[in-house]
């Protein structure tokens, strides 16, 4: 018969291993995540996993001061997600919009550069503003 303490120890180790695996998978999604909201969602998930880690460590070591840290971490994660959601809303465009804008600006700039020889005067009106768009689009995308 296996003792209860041995079962409990192996359960704690197993929980830590599974949590580490899910932490890594979530980090893969954050690094790869094609859009900003995906990354925000991944960060939200990371907070949940970190709270789980804190609970397991609190059980394993009996050092239950970390429970307060878990509550504070939940509060910070909630506020961060809300603030990021406000940021997504106030940015007002998706990654697709930004790429499309950058492509259009690049095409306009190329057209302006090609026709810079004979009829340069006709194109100069559009060229400077599209150049500005291109730069800001690049920065947003990065």
């Amino acid at each position: 018969m296996i003792s209860v303490a041995a079962i409990f120890d192996s359960a704690v180790t197993l929980a830590l291993a599974i949590l580490s695996l899910s932490f890594l998978v979530t980090i893969y999604r954050i690094v790869k995540g094609p859009t900003l909201p995906d990354r925000i969602l991944g960060l939200d998930m990371l907070v949940a996993i970190a709270i789980g880690f804190i609970a397991v460590i609190g059980i394993k070591t009996g050092y239950t001061l970390y429970v307060d840290v878990a509550i504070a971490l939940g509060l910070v994660g909630f506020l961060a997600t809300v603030a990021f959601a406000r940021f997504v809303l106030s940015r007002g465009k998706t990654e697709d919009d930004i790429i499309t804008e950058a492509r259009q600006a690049a095409a306009a700039a190329r057209k302006a550069a090609l026709s810079a020889g004979p009829d340069a005067k006709a194109r100069t009106a559009t060229a400077p503003s599209s150049g500005d768009n291109k730069i800001s689009g690049r920065q947003d995308h990065e």
Binding site: I7, L16, I18, L21, S22, V25, G52, I59
Partner: peptide
Amino acid sequence: TLISAALLVIGSVFALVASIGL
């Protein structure tokens, strides 16, 4: 102790399922 161990493993499996879904 056994209930606590079971809850730990179940909770971590839930977290793993959530991250696989992600």
